[in-house]
Structures are given as C-alpha cells and as structure tokens.
C-alpha cells in the first residue's frame, strides 16, 4: 500500500534496524499489544473489536437462512467481506472493494475455512434446500499496520461468540455454537 514517508525518517528506521532496534522499542519478533473486545455490536450475531497497537478492526458476523451450493447440499456457507472504509487511512478511497480489500477478505476467509473452525455440516437446516449463510464482515477502522492479523483475530473471535439466531429466524431446533 502506498504511503508517504520522509527520507530522513526512513533512514532513521533503517539505521535503527541495523542496530537491531525498532522505533517503538520492540524486539523484531514482538507483537504490539493486542486487545479483543467481544460482543460489541448487539445487532450482529457475533462481533469483535480488535486493537493491535493503534490498528483497529471491527468484525461482525451475521447469519441468515439461504440456499446451499449445489456441490455441498448439506453444508452451510461462509461469505467473507472486507471494507477498507476511507476513515481508516488517507490512502483508502470510497467505492467497491479494491484488490487490497479483496485479498484481505480472501485471506481471512481461507484462514477460517481451512482451519475448520466452523462445523459447516451443523449449519444445515434442510439438506439441499436450506442452510445457514454466515456473513463475516470485516470493517477496518484504523490502519496502523498489519490489519491482516487483526482481521483474522477478529473473525475468529467474532465467530467464537456468535449465536445462531435459530429461534429468532423461525428455525427453532437448536444449534450448538461452534
């Protein structure tokens, strides 16, 4: 991502790195402080606000019944979307997701999917006809670097506190949380 940085600051950062130091005093393998606040959005089925240093990412999970894919009639569907909203960085622009946003959403999606964190078969309501569709919406609020890790942490944290709105949407048989 393009961002402007002064030559003198760049030199300063490089020179520190040569000495094995970073501008905020961290070690090379040290994360910034991570904080996760869950269930921050009442209207969502699950949500998490992740702060990674000054970076802030809000992830909301919504669920609604819908049709399964033809090749997996008894499995729920995960749809991941990322919004790099322009309030998060001077380089983000309004409009449909660009390549950075799409890459981010796909990476988060792959992490959730391949880790098998969500039991998709448990999200089947009626095989071939109706399954739960899980929308993972990633909202970047403040981009101070490494929004990918923050988004992935947020996605998993939000899923962990997601409650299937079964009775609310008229499918009263119980579903366990994953």
């Amino acid at each position: 991502m393009s961002s402007v940085i002064s030559e003198i600051k760049k030199d300063f950062i490089y020179n520190l790195l040569i000495k094995g130091e970073r501008i905020d005093g961290r070690k090379f393998d040290q994360y910034r402080e991570i904080s996760i606040e869950r269930d921050v959005i009442r209207k969502a089925e699950g949500s998490a606000l992740v702060k990674l240093g000054s970076s802030q990412v809000l992830v909301g999970v919504k669920m609604q019944p819908g049709e399964p894919f033809q090749d997996s009639p008894n499995r729920g569907v995960i749809i991941t979307n990322a919004e790099l909203v322009p309030l998060a960085s001077p380089s983000f622009e309004p409009g449909p997701p660009n390549e950075v946003g799409i890459e981010l959403a796909r990476l988060v999606d792959r992490g959730v999917r391949e880790s098998k964190a969500v039991d998709l078969e448990a999200l089947c309501i009626e095989p071939g006809k109706k399954v739960w569709i899980v929308f993972i919406d990633v909202h970047i609020l403040d981009d101070c670097g490494n929004i990918l890790d923050a988004a992935s942490l947020g996605a998993i944290s939000a899923l962990l506190c997601t409650k299937v709105p079964a009775s609310h949407k008229g499918h009263s048989h119980s579903h366990d949380r994953d």
């Binding site: 959005i41 209207k43 969502a44 999970v61 609604q64 919004e83 322009p86 929308f135 919406d137 909202h139």
Partner: peptide, 18 residues
C-alpha cells in the same frame, strides 16, 4: 461527507456499499 452503514449494523444484513 460520506455516510455509510456497516453491513452488520442492522437487524437484516445490509449489502455493503452506498
């Protein structure tokens, strides 16, 4: 001025975008 709603901000998920 850009007013935007997060897709999870409402009861029924809102499609992203204006």
């Amino acid at each position: 001025y850009r007013y935007n709603m997060a897709s999870f901000s409402v009861e029924e998920r809102k499609r992203p975008g204006p």
